[in-house]
Amino acid sequence: MEQILANGVYLGSQYAMIALGLTLIFALMNVLNFAHGQMYVIGGFVTYTFYGQWGVPFVLALVMSCVTLAILGALIERFLFAPVIKGSAREESTMLLAAGIAFFLDAVILLVFGEKQRGVPKIVDGVFNYDFRLIMPYDRILICVLAILSIVAFIGLMQYTKTGRALRALAQDRTAAQLMGVNVDRYSMIGFALGAMLAGLVGGLLVTITGVNLGMGGPTSIKAFMMVMIGGAGVISGAIWGGIILGFMEAIGLALLYQYGDITYLLIFVSLMIFLAIRPQGLMGKPWG
């Protein structure tokens, strides 16, 4: 039981970070970022290159992942999403763009990093063992703590800084924020960069444990969508709850139903559909997003 709970916390903290980036981008721009999983994979590969290949300290490699993704996110917003949102008759057209970017990033990852599974040396050795009831490698604990710290830092940023206030205003009401003198274009770009950066950071953190490969992008995006739906689209606290809930459901399901294979995911998906049919806006979302 302790083991399941620990796994749940571990998975949940990772998931919450992925969902945070996605929900931030959605709240600001009403864009469903299909490329989020690919951004996560790129973050993983950047850390792999710096830390695994060139022997740069891990923290520095993580910073490089964040910087790369932030720049990438800012460029994508400035030169692709912003003009398309302005020019299209229906907002949903951005989905085609997002999917196109997902394909594009996949292609770039394939050409630059290849299709092999990549891993890096462990950052810390050893296993935490509590009476054989709770076994957890130290690097997992470290990554989990780092993830929770990042989430706390992100919430702090959103709550207590000028940028965070501007971003929250933008998410609440774009026009009103503009009337109050918020530079909408600039903060949209910052918000997108921040969301992409979070994806890169998780990628960089997780490469030390699960490694990274080309095929991880799509499934990660789908999981992120699910967490965002559980919590309510565009709500920061909702994304965190969504991540934690999905993390625990997976940990519990995989522990109890491991002999049935994929039945865990089937159950999760079905219960999600039932949940959403009863409560369409998720746990904390505004009705109709």
């Binding site: 965002v228 559909m273 049919a277 369409p280 998720g282 109709w288 997003g289």
Partner: peptide, 14 residues
């Protein structure tokens, strides 16, 4: 009964 991205995502899950 769902709309917008909520419907989109639930169909994705489907």
């Amino acid at each position: 009964r769902l709309r917008g991205v909520y419907f989109a995502m639930i169909t994705l899950v489907l």
